[in-house]
Design a protein around this nucleic acid. Structure first.
Lengths: 192, 192
DNA sequence: GTCTATAAGAAGATAGAC
DNA sequence: GTCTATCTTCTTATAGAC
């Protein structure tokens, strides 16, 4: 654990770049974020940025890899906290509620990135869809605890509902809509 | 009717520009579409484009105005074809099925544009959200035929479901998912 | 590892000829 | 109305000094 930063008291510039890029890609969008934006935010030079990441695509790749790792760790923690399938599913919905402020202002970080990249950069979209796959597979696994035959269809249905909820919350900047839709989703989970 | 093109045998360049921009903003995204893209597609010069539309924002404005007009005409036609509330709602869902190929390849034209512009161009997002408002108001009016108290909440819920469906259909390029989710939405409409 | 300088190209937009 | 030419700024990326 402490091995990570053994040689430095604080984060390395490389780590800082990834974190700032992660944030800016989410809040401004990937195409609307330039190397200059990232460099200015950190107070470093663009040349330095190119030393750590030869291209913008390489930076996105690294950002997504970090995000995937965080998602995997999140599921591991949830699985440790809850064993009941419905409790696990509701923990997923609770994540949306907890993330209200960001959803209202910036939308779903997975969905918006995927839409942006899918338009004319299919290669990059493939990378971003892998984050979606992590959610889909975890949900399918959890739904299998309830009914293995319906698990895949239900996982896609739940993702569809959460994506729609995130989209509407974002478009209308409406946190009440978020809560109402999350309540409806939780009732659906209870009804299974 | 024929007055529109009284002086020309075919479309004017201005009309052609709007149509091509409409298409490219949808398929490539607004930020990823340049004046050069539009001009090349039509075989005209960039200077010509700037004669008709002084700025890119002005072009987007005109494209959205056209789109809003088409949406209004679509609702008028549906209202003429169906008087029953549930028939009208199902016509809305049928539109998604009819548009399968585009949804699979490019996603929802309203949702994706709104997400893109909302990231850091809130002024432009306002224009694009007006298209959403047209749908929301029409749906609320139709739901009022069933139950005036629940009409607004139901209109938002239906939009949420359709946005989620469009998003998942797009991300996984999955037309079967589109049909399954549309069937589920139609069942929900029947249950009201 | 980090900087400055610079290339090479694309973008939105303007000026002026036809 | 349409064109070519040009301007300015931004963007990704490279080269070379420290």
């Amino acid at each position: 654990m402490w091995l990570k930063n053994m040689n430095t008291q604080t984060q390395s510039n490389r780590e800082r770049i990834i974190k700032v890029a992660y944030q800016l890609f989410y809040t401004k969008g990937y195409n609307q974020t330039s190397f200059a934006d990232v460099a200015n935010e950190l107070g470093i030079s663009k040349g330095n940025l190119h030393y750590h990441f030869p291209s913008k695509g390489a930076l996105l790749n690294t950002v997504i890899a970090l995000r995937k790792q965080q998602i995997i760790e999140m599921f591991a923690q949830w699985d440790g906290e809850f064993s009941d399938a419905k409790d696990r599913l509701k923990r997923f919905i609770q994540m949306m509620i907890n993330n209200e402020a960001n959803l209202v202002r910036y939308g779903c970080p997975l969905g918006s990135l995927n839409v942006e990249l899918g338009k004319d950069q299919r290669d990059l979209q493939g990378m971003s869809r892998e984050m979606f796959d992590l959610y889909q597979h975890w949900l399918e696994k959890v739904f299998t605890q309830l009914d293995s035959k319906k698990s895949k269809a239900r996982s896609l249905h739940l993702l569809s509902m959460t994506q729609g909820t995130a989209m509407m919350t974002y478009i209308y900047s409406d946190s009440k809509l978020l809560k109402d839709e999350c309540n409806a989703i939780n009732e659906w989970i209870d009804s299974l």
